[in-house]
Design a protein around this nucleic acid. Structure first.
Lengths: 201, 201
DNA sequence: TATCTAATTAGATACTTGTTAAATTACATA
DNA sequence: TATGTAATTTAACAAGTATCTAATTAGATA
């Protein structure tokens, strides 16, 4: 049944060690022992996780003499969760494997920024169109440190540099998952949680 | 750290009861007792799962008197895993909440089919361009029963009705996750596992 | 064949998690 | 205030799973 496959797919990705394996494999194929060493676990543990990743069609295996090399199943990863895909691929080198996408992003970003920001870098107003609004929000939030925690006051000050209506924009940050709030403390969400305009319509 | 959030997101979706909750909520908001009744679990179980879904920002809650109504957090779902999103939304009524997307799909599908199939319904050749190839493959595989198991011979016969090179096309079915093979038995994958052309570039 | 290496299996342990029954809390209303 | 309803919390249990050690298998090579 269909439900099981979806659940199993998410189960496969619901473990930190397995995600780390995928991240490592994004740089190229590796064998079990090397993976074990890099992750500070035993080879038996790698075998265990490899089985789960294989069942979910997330990796391939290639045997050369005694050694089995694991690699990502690109086809599958690409067809699923952009979230995870981004986490995995973003770290892999700086060479442009996603050039076309990034070109499109950059062009759209430039255009929107040119139209909605003044030459002094102030935001004229939030675009009404959702796609453009998301671009503006992404542009703004990219200027925050992704590691640290902010107090609400700090976020307000940051936004006020661009526009006076900090309350609305702060709310949009949360609503579109650019930021995360807990006990009045704000934090930038990982990029793969951002609502991205490319995915709308 | 970023890794935890991704893992937690997948953990939230790695349970059949929680997926069923999301599927039910796709039809509209529901309160805890109704969910419990529909899923044959106790209210306590719903509370437990609701907490996990809330932590992953997958649902919202609204209180009206004593009753708490749960609903999908559309923003978040849309920004993540098309896989899960499709599973959840496909069942929700037949009213067109995703009309624009479907229109685009249908138009692209029609165009490609018109160009690559003869008037007798034979496939001229597999498109070289990936996007178009995926459309052709999707068109073909849609004509298979999604529930049943096929022997390799049956798949070959099915494909031969469209094109003589069944081996290549059968391999493409597997490679792009339209089908799944185990012990020479073939099965159509759930749609959310298909590599979909909309997601490329 | 004997030996070496990489991977897997089997069994054990500790931790996590899905579920329930029972008690408790939060609201609303008669 | 007393009663009723919906949700939550708590404690317990069963099932699942991540990890390890030790033993075993598969394959290559001297």
């Amino acid at each position: 049944m269909q439900l099981d496959k979806v659940v199993n797919y998410h189960k496969a990705l619901a473990d930190p060690t397995r995600i780390k394996i995928l991240i490592l494999l994004a740089d190229g194929e590796l064998n079990g022992q090397v993976l074990a060493e890099k992750l500070s676990v035993t080879p038996a543990t790698i075998t265990h996780h490899a089985a789960k990743l294989r069942e979910a069609s997330l990796i391939n295996e290639r045997r050369d003499k005694n050694t089995i090399y694991f690699s990502l199943n690109d086809y599958f990863i690409k067809s699923n969760s952009t979230a995870t895909e981004n986490l995995i691929y973003r770290r892999a080198g700086t060479q442009g494997d996603g050039e076309t996408m990034n070109d499109e992003r950059n062009r759209a970003m430039e255009t929107v920024v040119k139209n909605f920001f003044t030459s002094e870098g102030k935001l004229k107003h939030l675009p009404a169109q959702l796609k453009k609004k998301l671009i503006v929000l992404e542009y703004l939030v990219s200027r925050l440190d992704s590691g640290r925690k902010y107090e609400e006051k700090e976020i307000n000050e940051f936004i006020k540099d661009f526009h006076e209506d900090f309350a609305t924009i702060r709310r949009e940050f949360i609503m579109h998952q650019f930021m995360y709030r807990e006990d009045q403390i704000y934090e930038v969400n990982p990029r793969e949680m951002w609502v991205r305009w490319e995915e709308l319509s």
